[in-house]
């Protein structure tokens, strides 16, 4: 059974088709990159799989996670809250609660598992707190547990968010541009944490990325979106510069980390002549 199965998914914002009849199968244990330029539908797709947005009403379209339908016929199913427990979501803006401690933020990952009243009152057991600490230790920020989440750097916040998804025990992890607002070193650590969860725990990961270089490095399979349709689905290695240019044309600059800027060119002769004339 597929970990994520998307069938005939469409989404229209006003008149614009953000997603156009998308079908996708992701097997358990895969790590798949979702690439595409801004506005190609990456985030929209991920928000649909997590059941945070409703798809267009269409009798055919549905999304199932481990065989359980989270969306069907343009409505979020009644089981959505149940299914969400098994889906961890990592957001571009981390979506931590800034005024709560890092530990408390990680513990909220357990809300879908512990009894509702106990969770609502925030009464977590010692064992649960240790589980959260272990998750924080795994992403390398255990020492920040008592700090307010808002005091952490972007990279640390994103790792705390990964820890939250870890304690959730999710079998499927959706990451919506997790590194888009991070510096390169933090981005690398975050991608490594995701990759670690995938390799060691066998968690299925679907990660949307802006830059194809990260996809090639961490994800064996890449799905490329263009104008709300699947433009490419296959091994990441095959996505070299030429293949990308065929897919995206001039928009390719947005998807590849620009090369180091070239050495500064001396002033053009005409400009230099002007300069000496005015001096």
């Amino acid at each position: 059974m597929a970990a994520i199965k998307i069938d005939g998914l469409s989404k229209t914002f006003g008149r614009r088709k953000a997603l156009d009849n998308i079908s996708l199968n992701i097997a358990p244990g895969e790590m798949v990159a979702l690439i595409g330029a801004s506005g190609s539908g990456k985030s929209t797709l991920i928000r649909h799989v997590s059941g945070l947005v409703k798809a267009d009403a269409d009798e055919l379209g549905h999304i199932a996670v481990h065989g359980r339908k989270i969306q069907e016929m343009g409505g979020i199913t009644n089981d959505a809250r149940q299914i969400r427990r098994d889906i961890g979501v990592i957001f571009q803006q981390f979506n931590l609660v800034g005024r709560m401690s890092v530990l408390s933020n990680v513990l909220t990952g357990l809300l879908g598992r512990v009894p509702a009243l106990r969770g609502t009152l925030g009464l977590f057991t010692r064992a649960e707190k240790l589980l959260a600490m272990q998750a924080l230790d795994r992403v390398g920020i255990a020492e920040t547990a008592r700090q307010r989440a808002s005091t952490l750097s972007g990279g640390q916040q994103q790792r705390a968010a990964i820890a939250r998804a870890t304690v959730q025990g999710a079998r499927v992890l959706l990451a919506d541009e997790p590194i888009a607002s991070l510096d390169p070193a933090s981005a690398k650590r975050v991608m490594e944490s995701l990759s670690d969860l995938n390799r060691k725990d066998g968690v299925t990961v679907l990660v949307s990325l802006h830059q194809v270089d990260y996809a090639r490095k961490y994800c064996p399979r890449t799905v490329a979106l263009r104008n709300g349709t699947v433009a490419y689905d296959g091994p990441s290695d095959a996505l070299d510069h030429r293949a990308l240019r065929a897919l995206y044309g001039s928009a390719i600059d947005e998807l590849v980390i620009p090369e180091a800027p070239e050495v500064w060119q001396p002033v053009a002769p005409a400009a230099r002549a002007l300069e000496s004339a005015t001096a």
Binding site: V89, F94, L111, A161
Partner: peptide, 24 residues
């Protein structure tokens, strides 16, 4: 955003308010 973060964990509506809204 934080409310969405809590919702994504499979929390119930009341928990979204307690953990996502009230601290803010």
């Amino acid at each position: 955003h934080p409310v969405e973060g809590i919702r994504a964990t499979g929390a119930i509506r009341l928990q979204e308010i307690v953990f996502g809204v009230i601290p803010q």
